[in-house]
């Protein structure tokens, strides 16, 4: 069976690019829904912002930089040349996925007898 590609989708935005590429690799489908059409400068700007973010990360990775640690710095310096990315970082910059998992079991095991 040929290989499958991982897909990331659901609430992801350009500011999370370092983590997305770190966790899923470079052969990945990134589906930015809200992260594209919710961009304050318009949908095309949203697409541009995402594209600039992924290109900047790949460029930095190829040059040998630690894109995981320096990811935010790379995005911020890329945003200097791209107003769309700057707007995306301003809008969603502090959104992360730190929340209580909804997947925890809610069954308490009690000993019988």
């Amino acid at each position: 069976m040929p290989g499958t590609m991982p897909v990331a989708s659901g609430g992801i935005h350009a500011g999370q690019m370092p983590q997305l590429l770190d966790y899923l690799g470079e052969d990945v489908i990134l589906q930015f829904g809200g992260g594209t059409i919710g961009h304050p400068m318009g949908i095309a700007a949203g697409a541009t912002a995402n594209r600039v973010a992924v290109e900047a990360m790949i460029k930095a990775r190829n040059e040998g930089r630690d894109f995981v640690r320096e990811g935010q710095d790379i995005l911020v310096s890329a945003a200097k040349h791209c107003a769309e990315l700057q707007a995306a970082l301003d809008t969603w910059g502090d959104i992360s996925f730190n929340y209580e998992s909804t997947d925890t079991p809610d069954v308490m095991s009690t000993p019988t007898a």
Partner: peptide
């Protein structure tokens, strides 16, 4: 192509990509 949305690559940056 890749990197087309970024500013044009300098010669040093091109060298780094080719070396990769």
């Amino acid at each position: 192509g890749t990197f087309s949305y970024l500013p044009d690559l300098t010669d040093d940056e091109i060298t780094a990509q080719i070396q990769y």
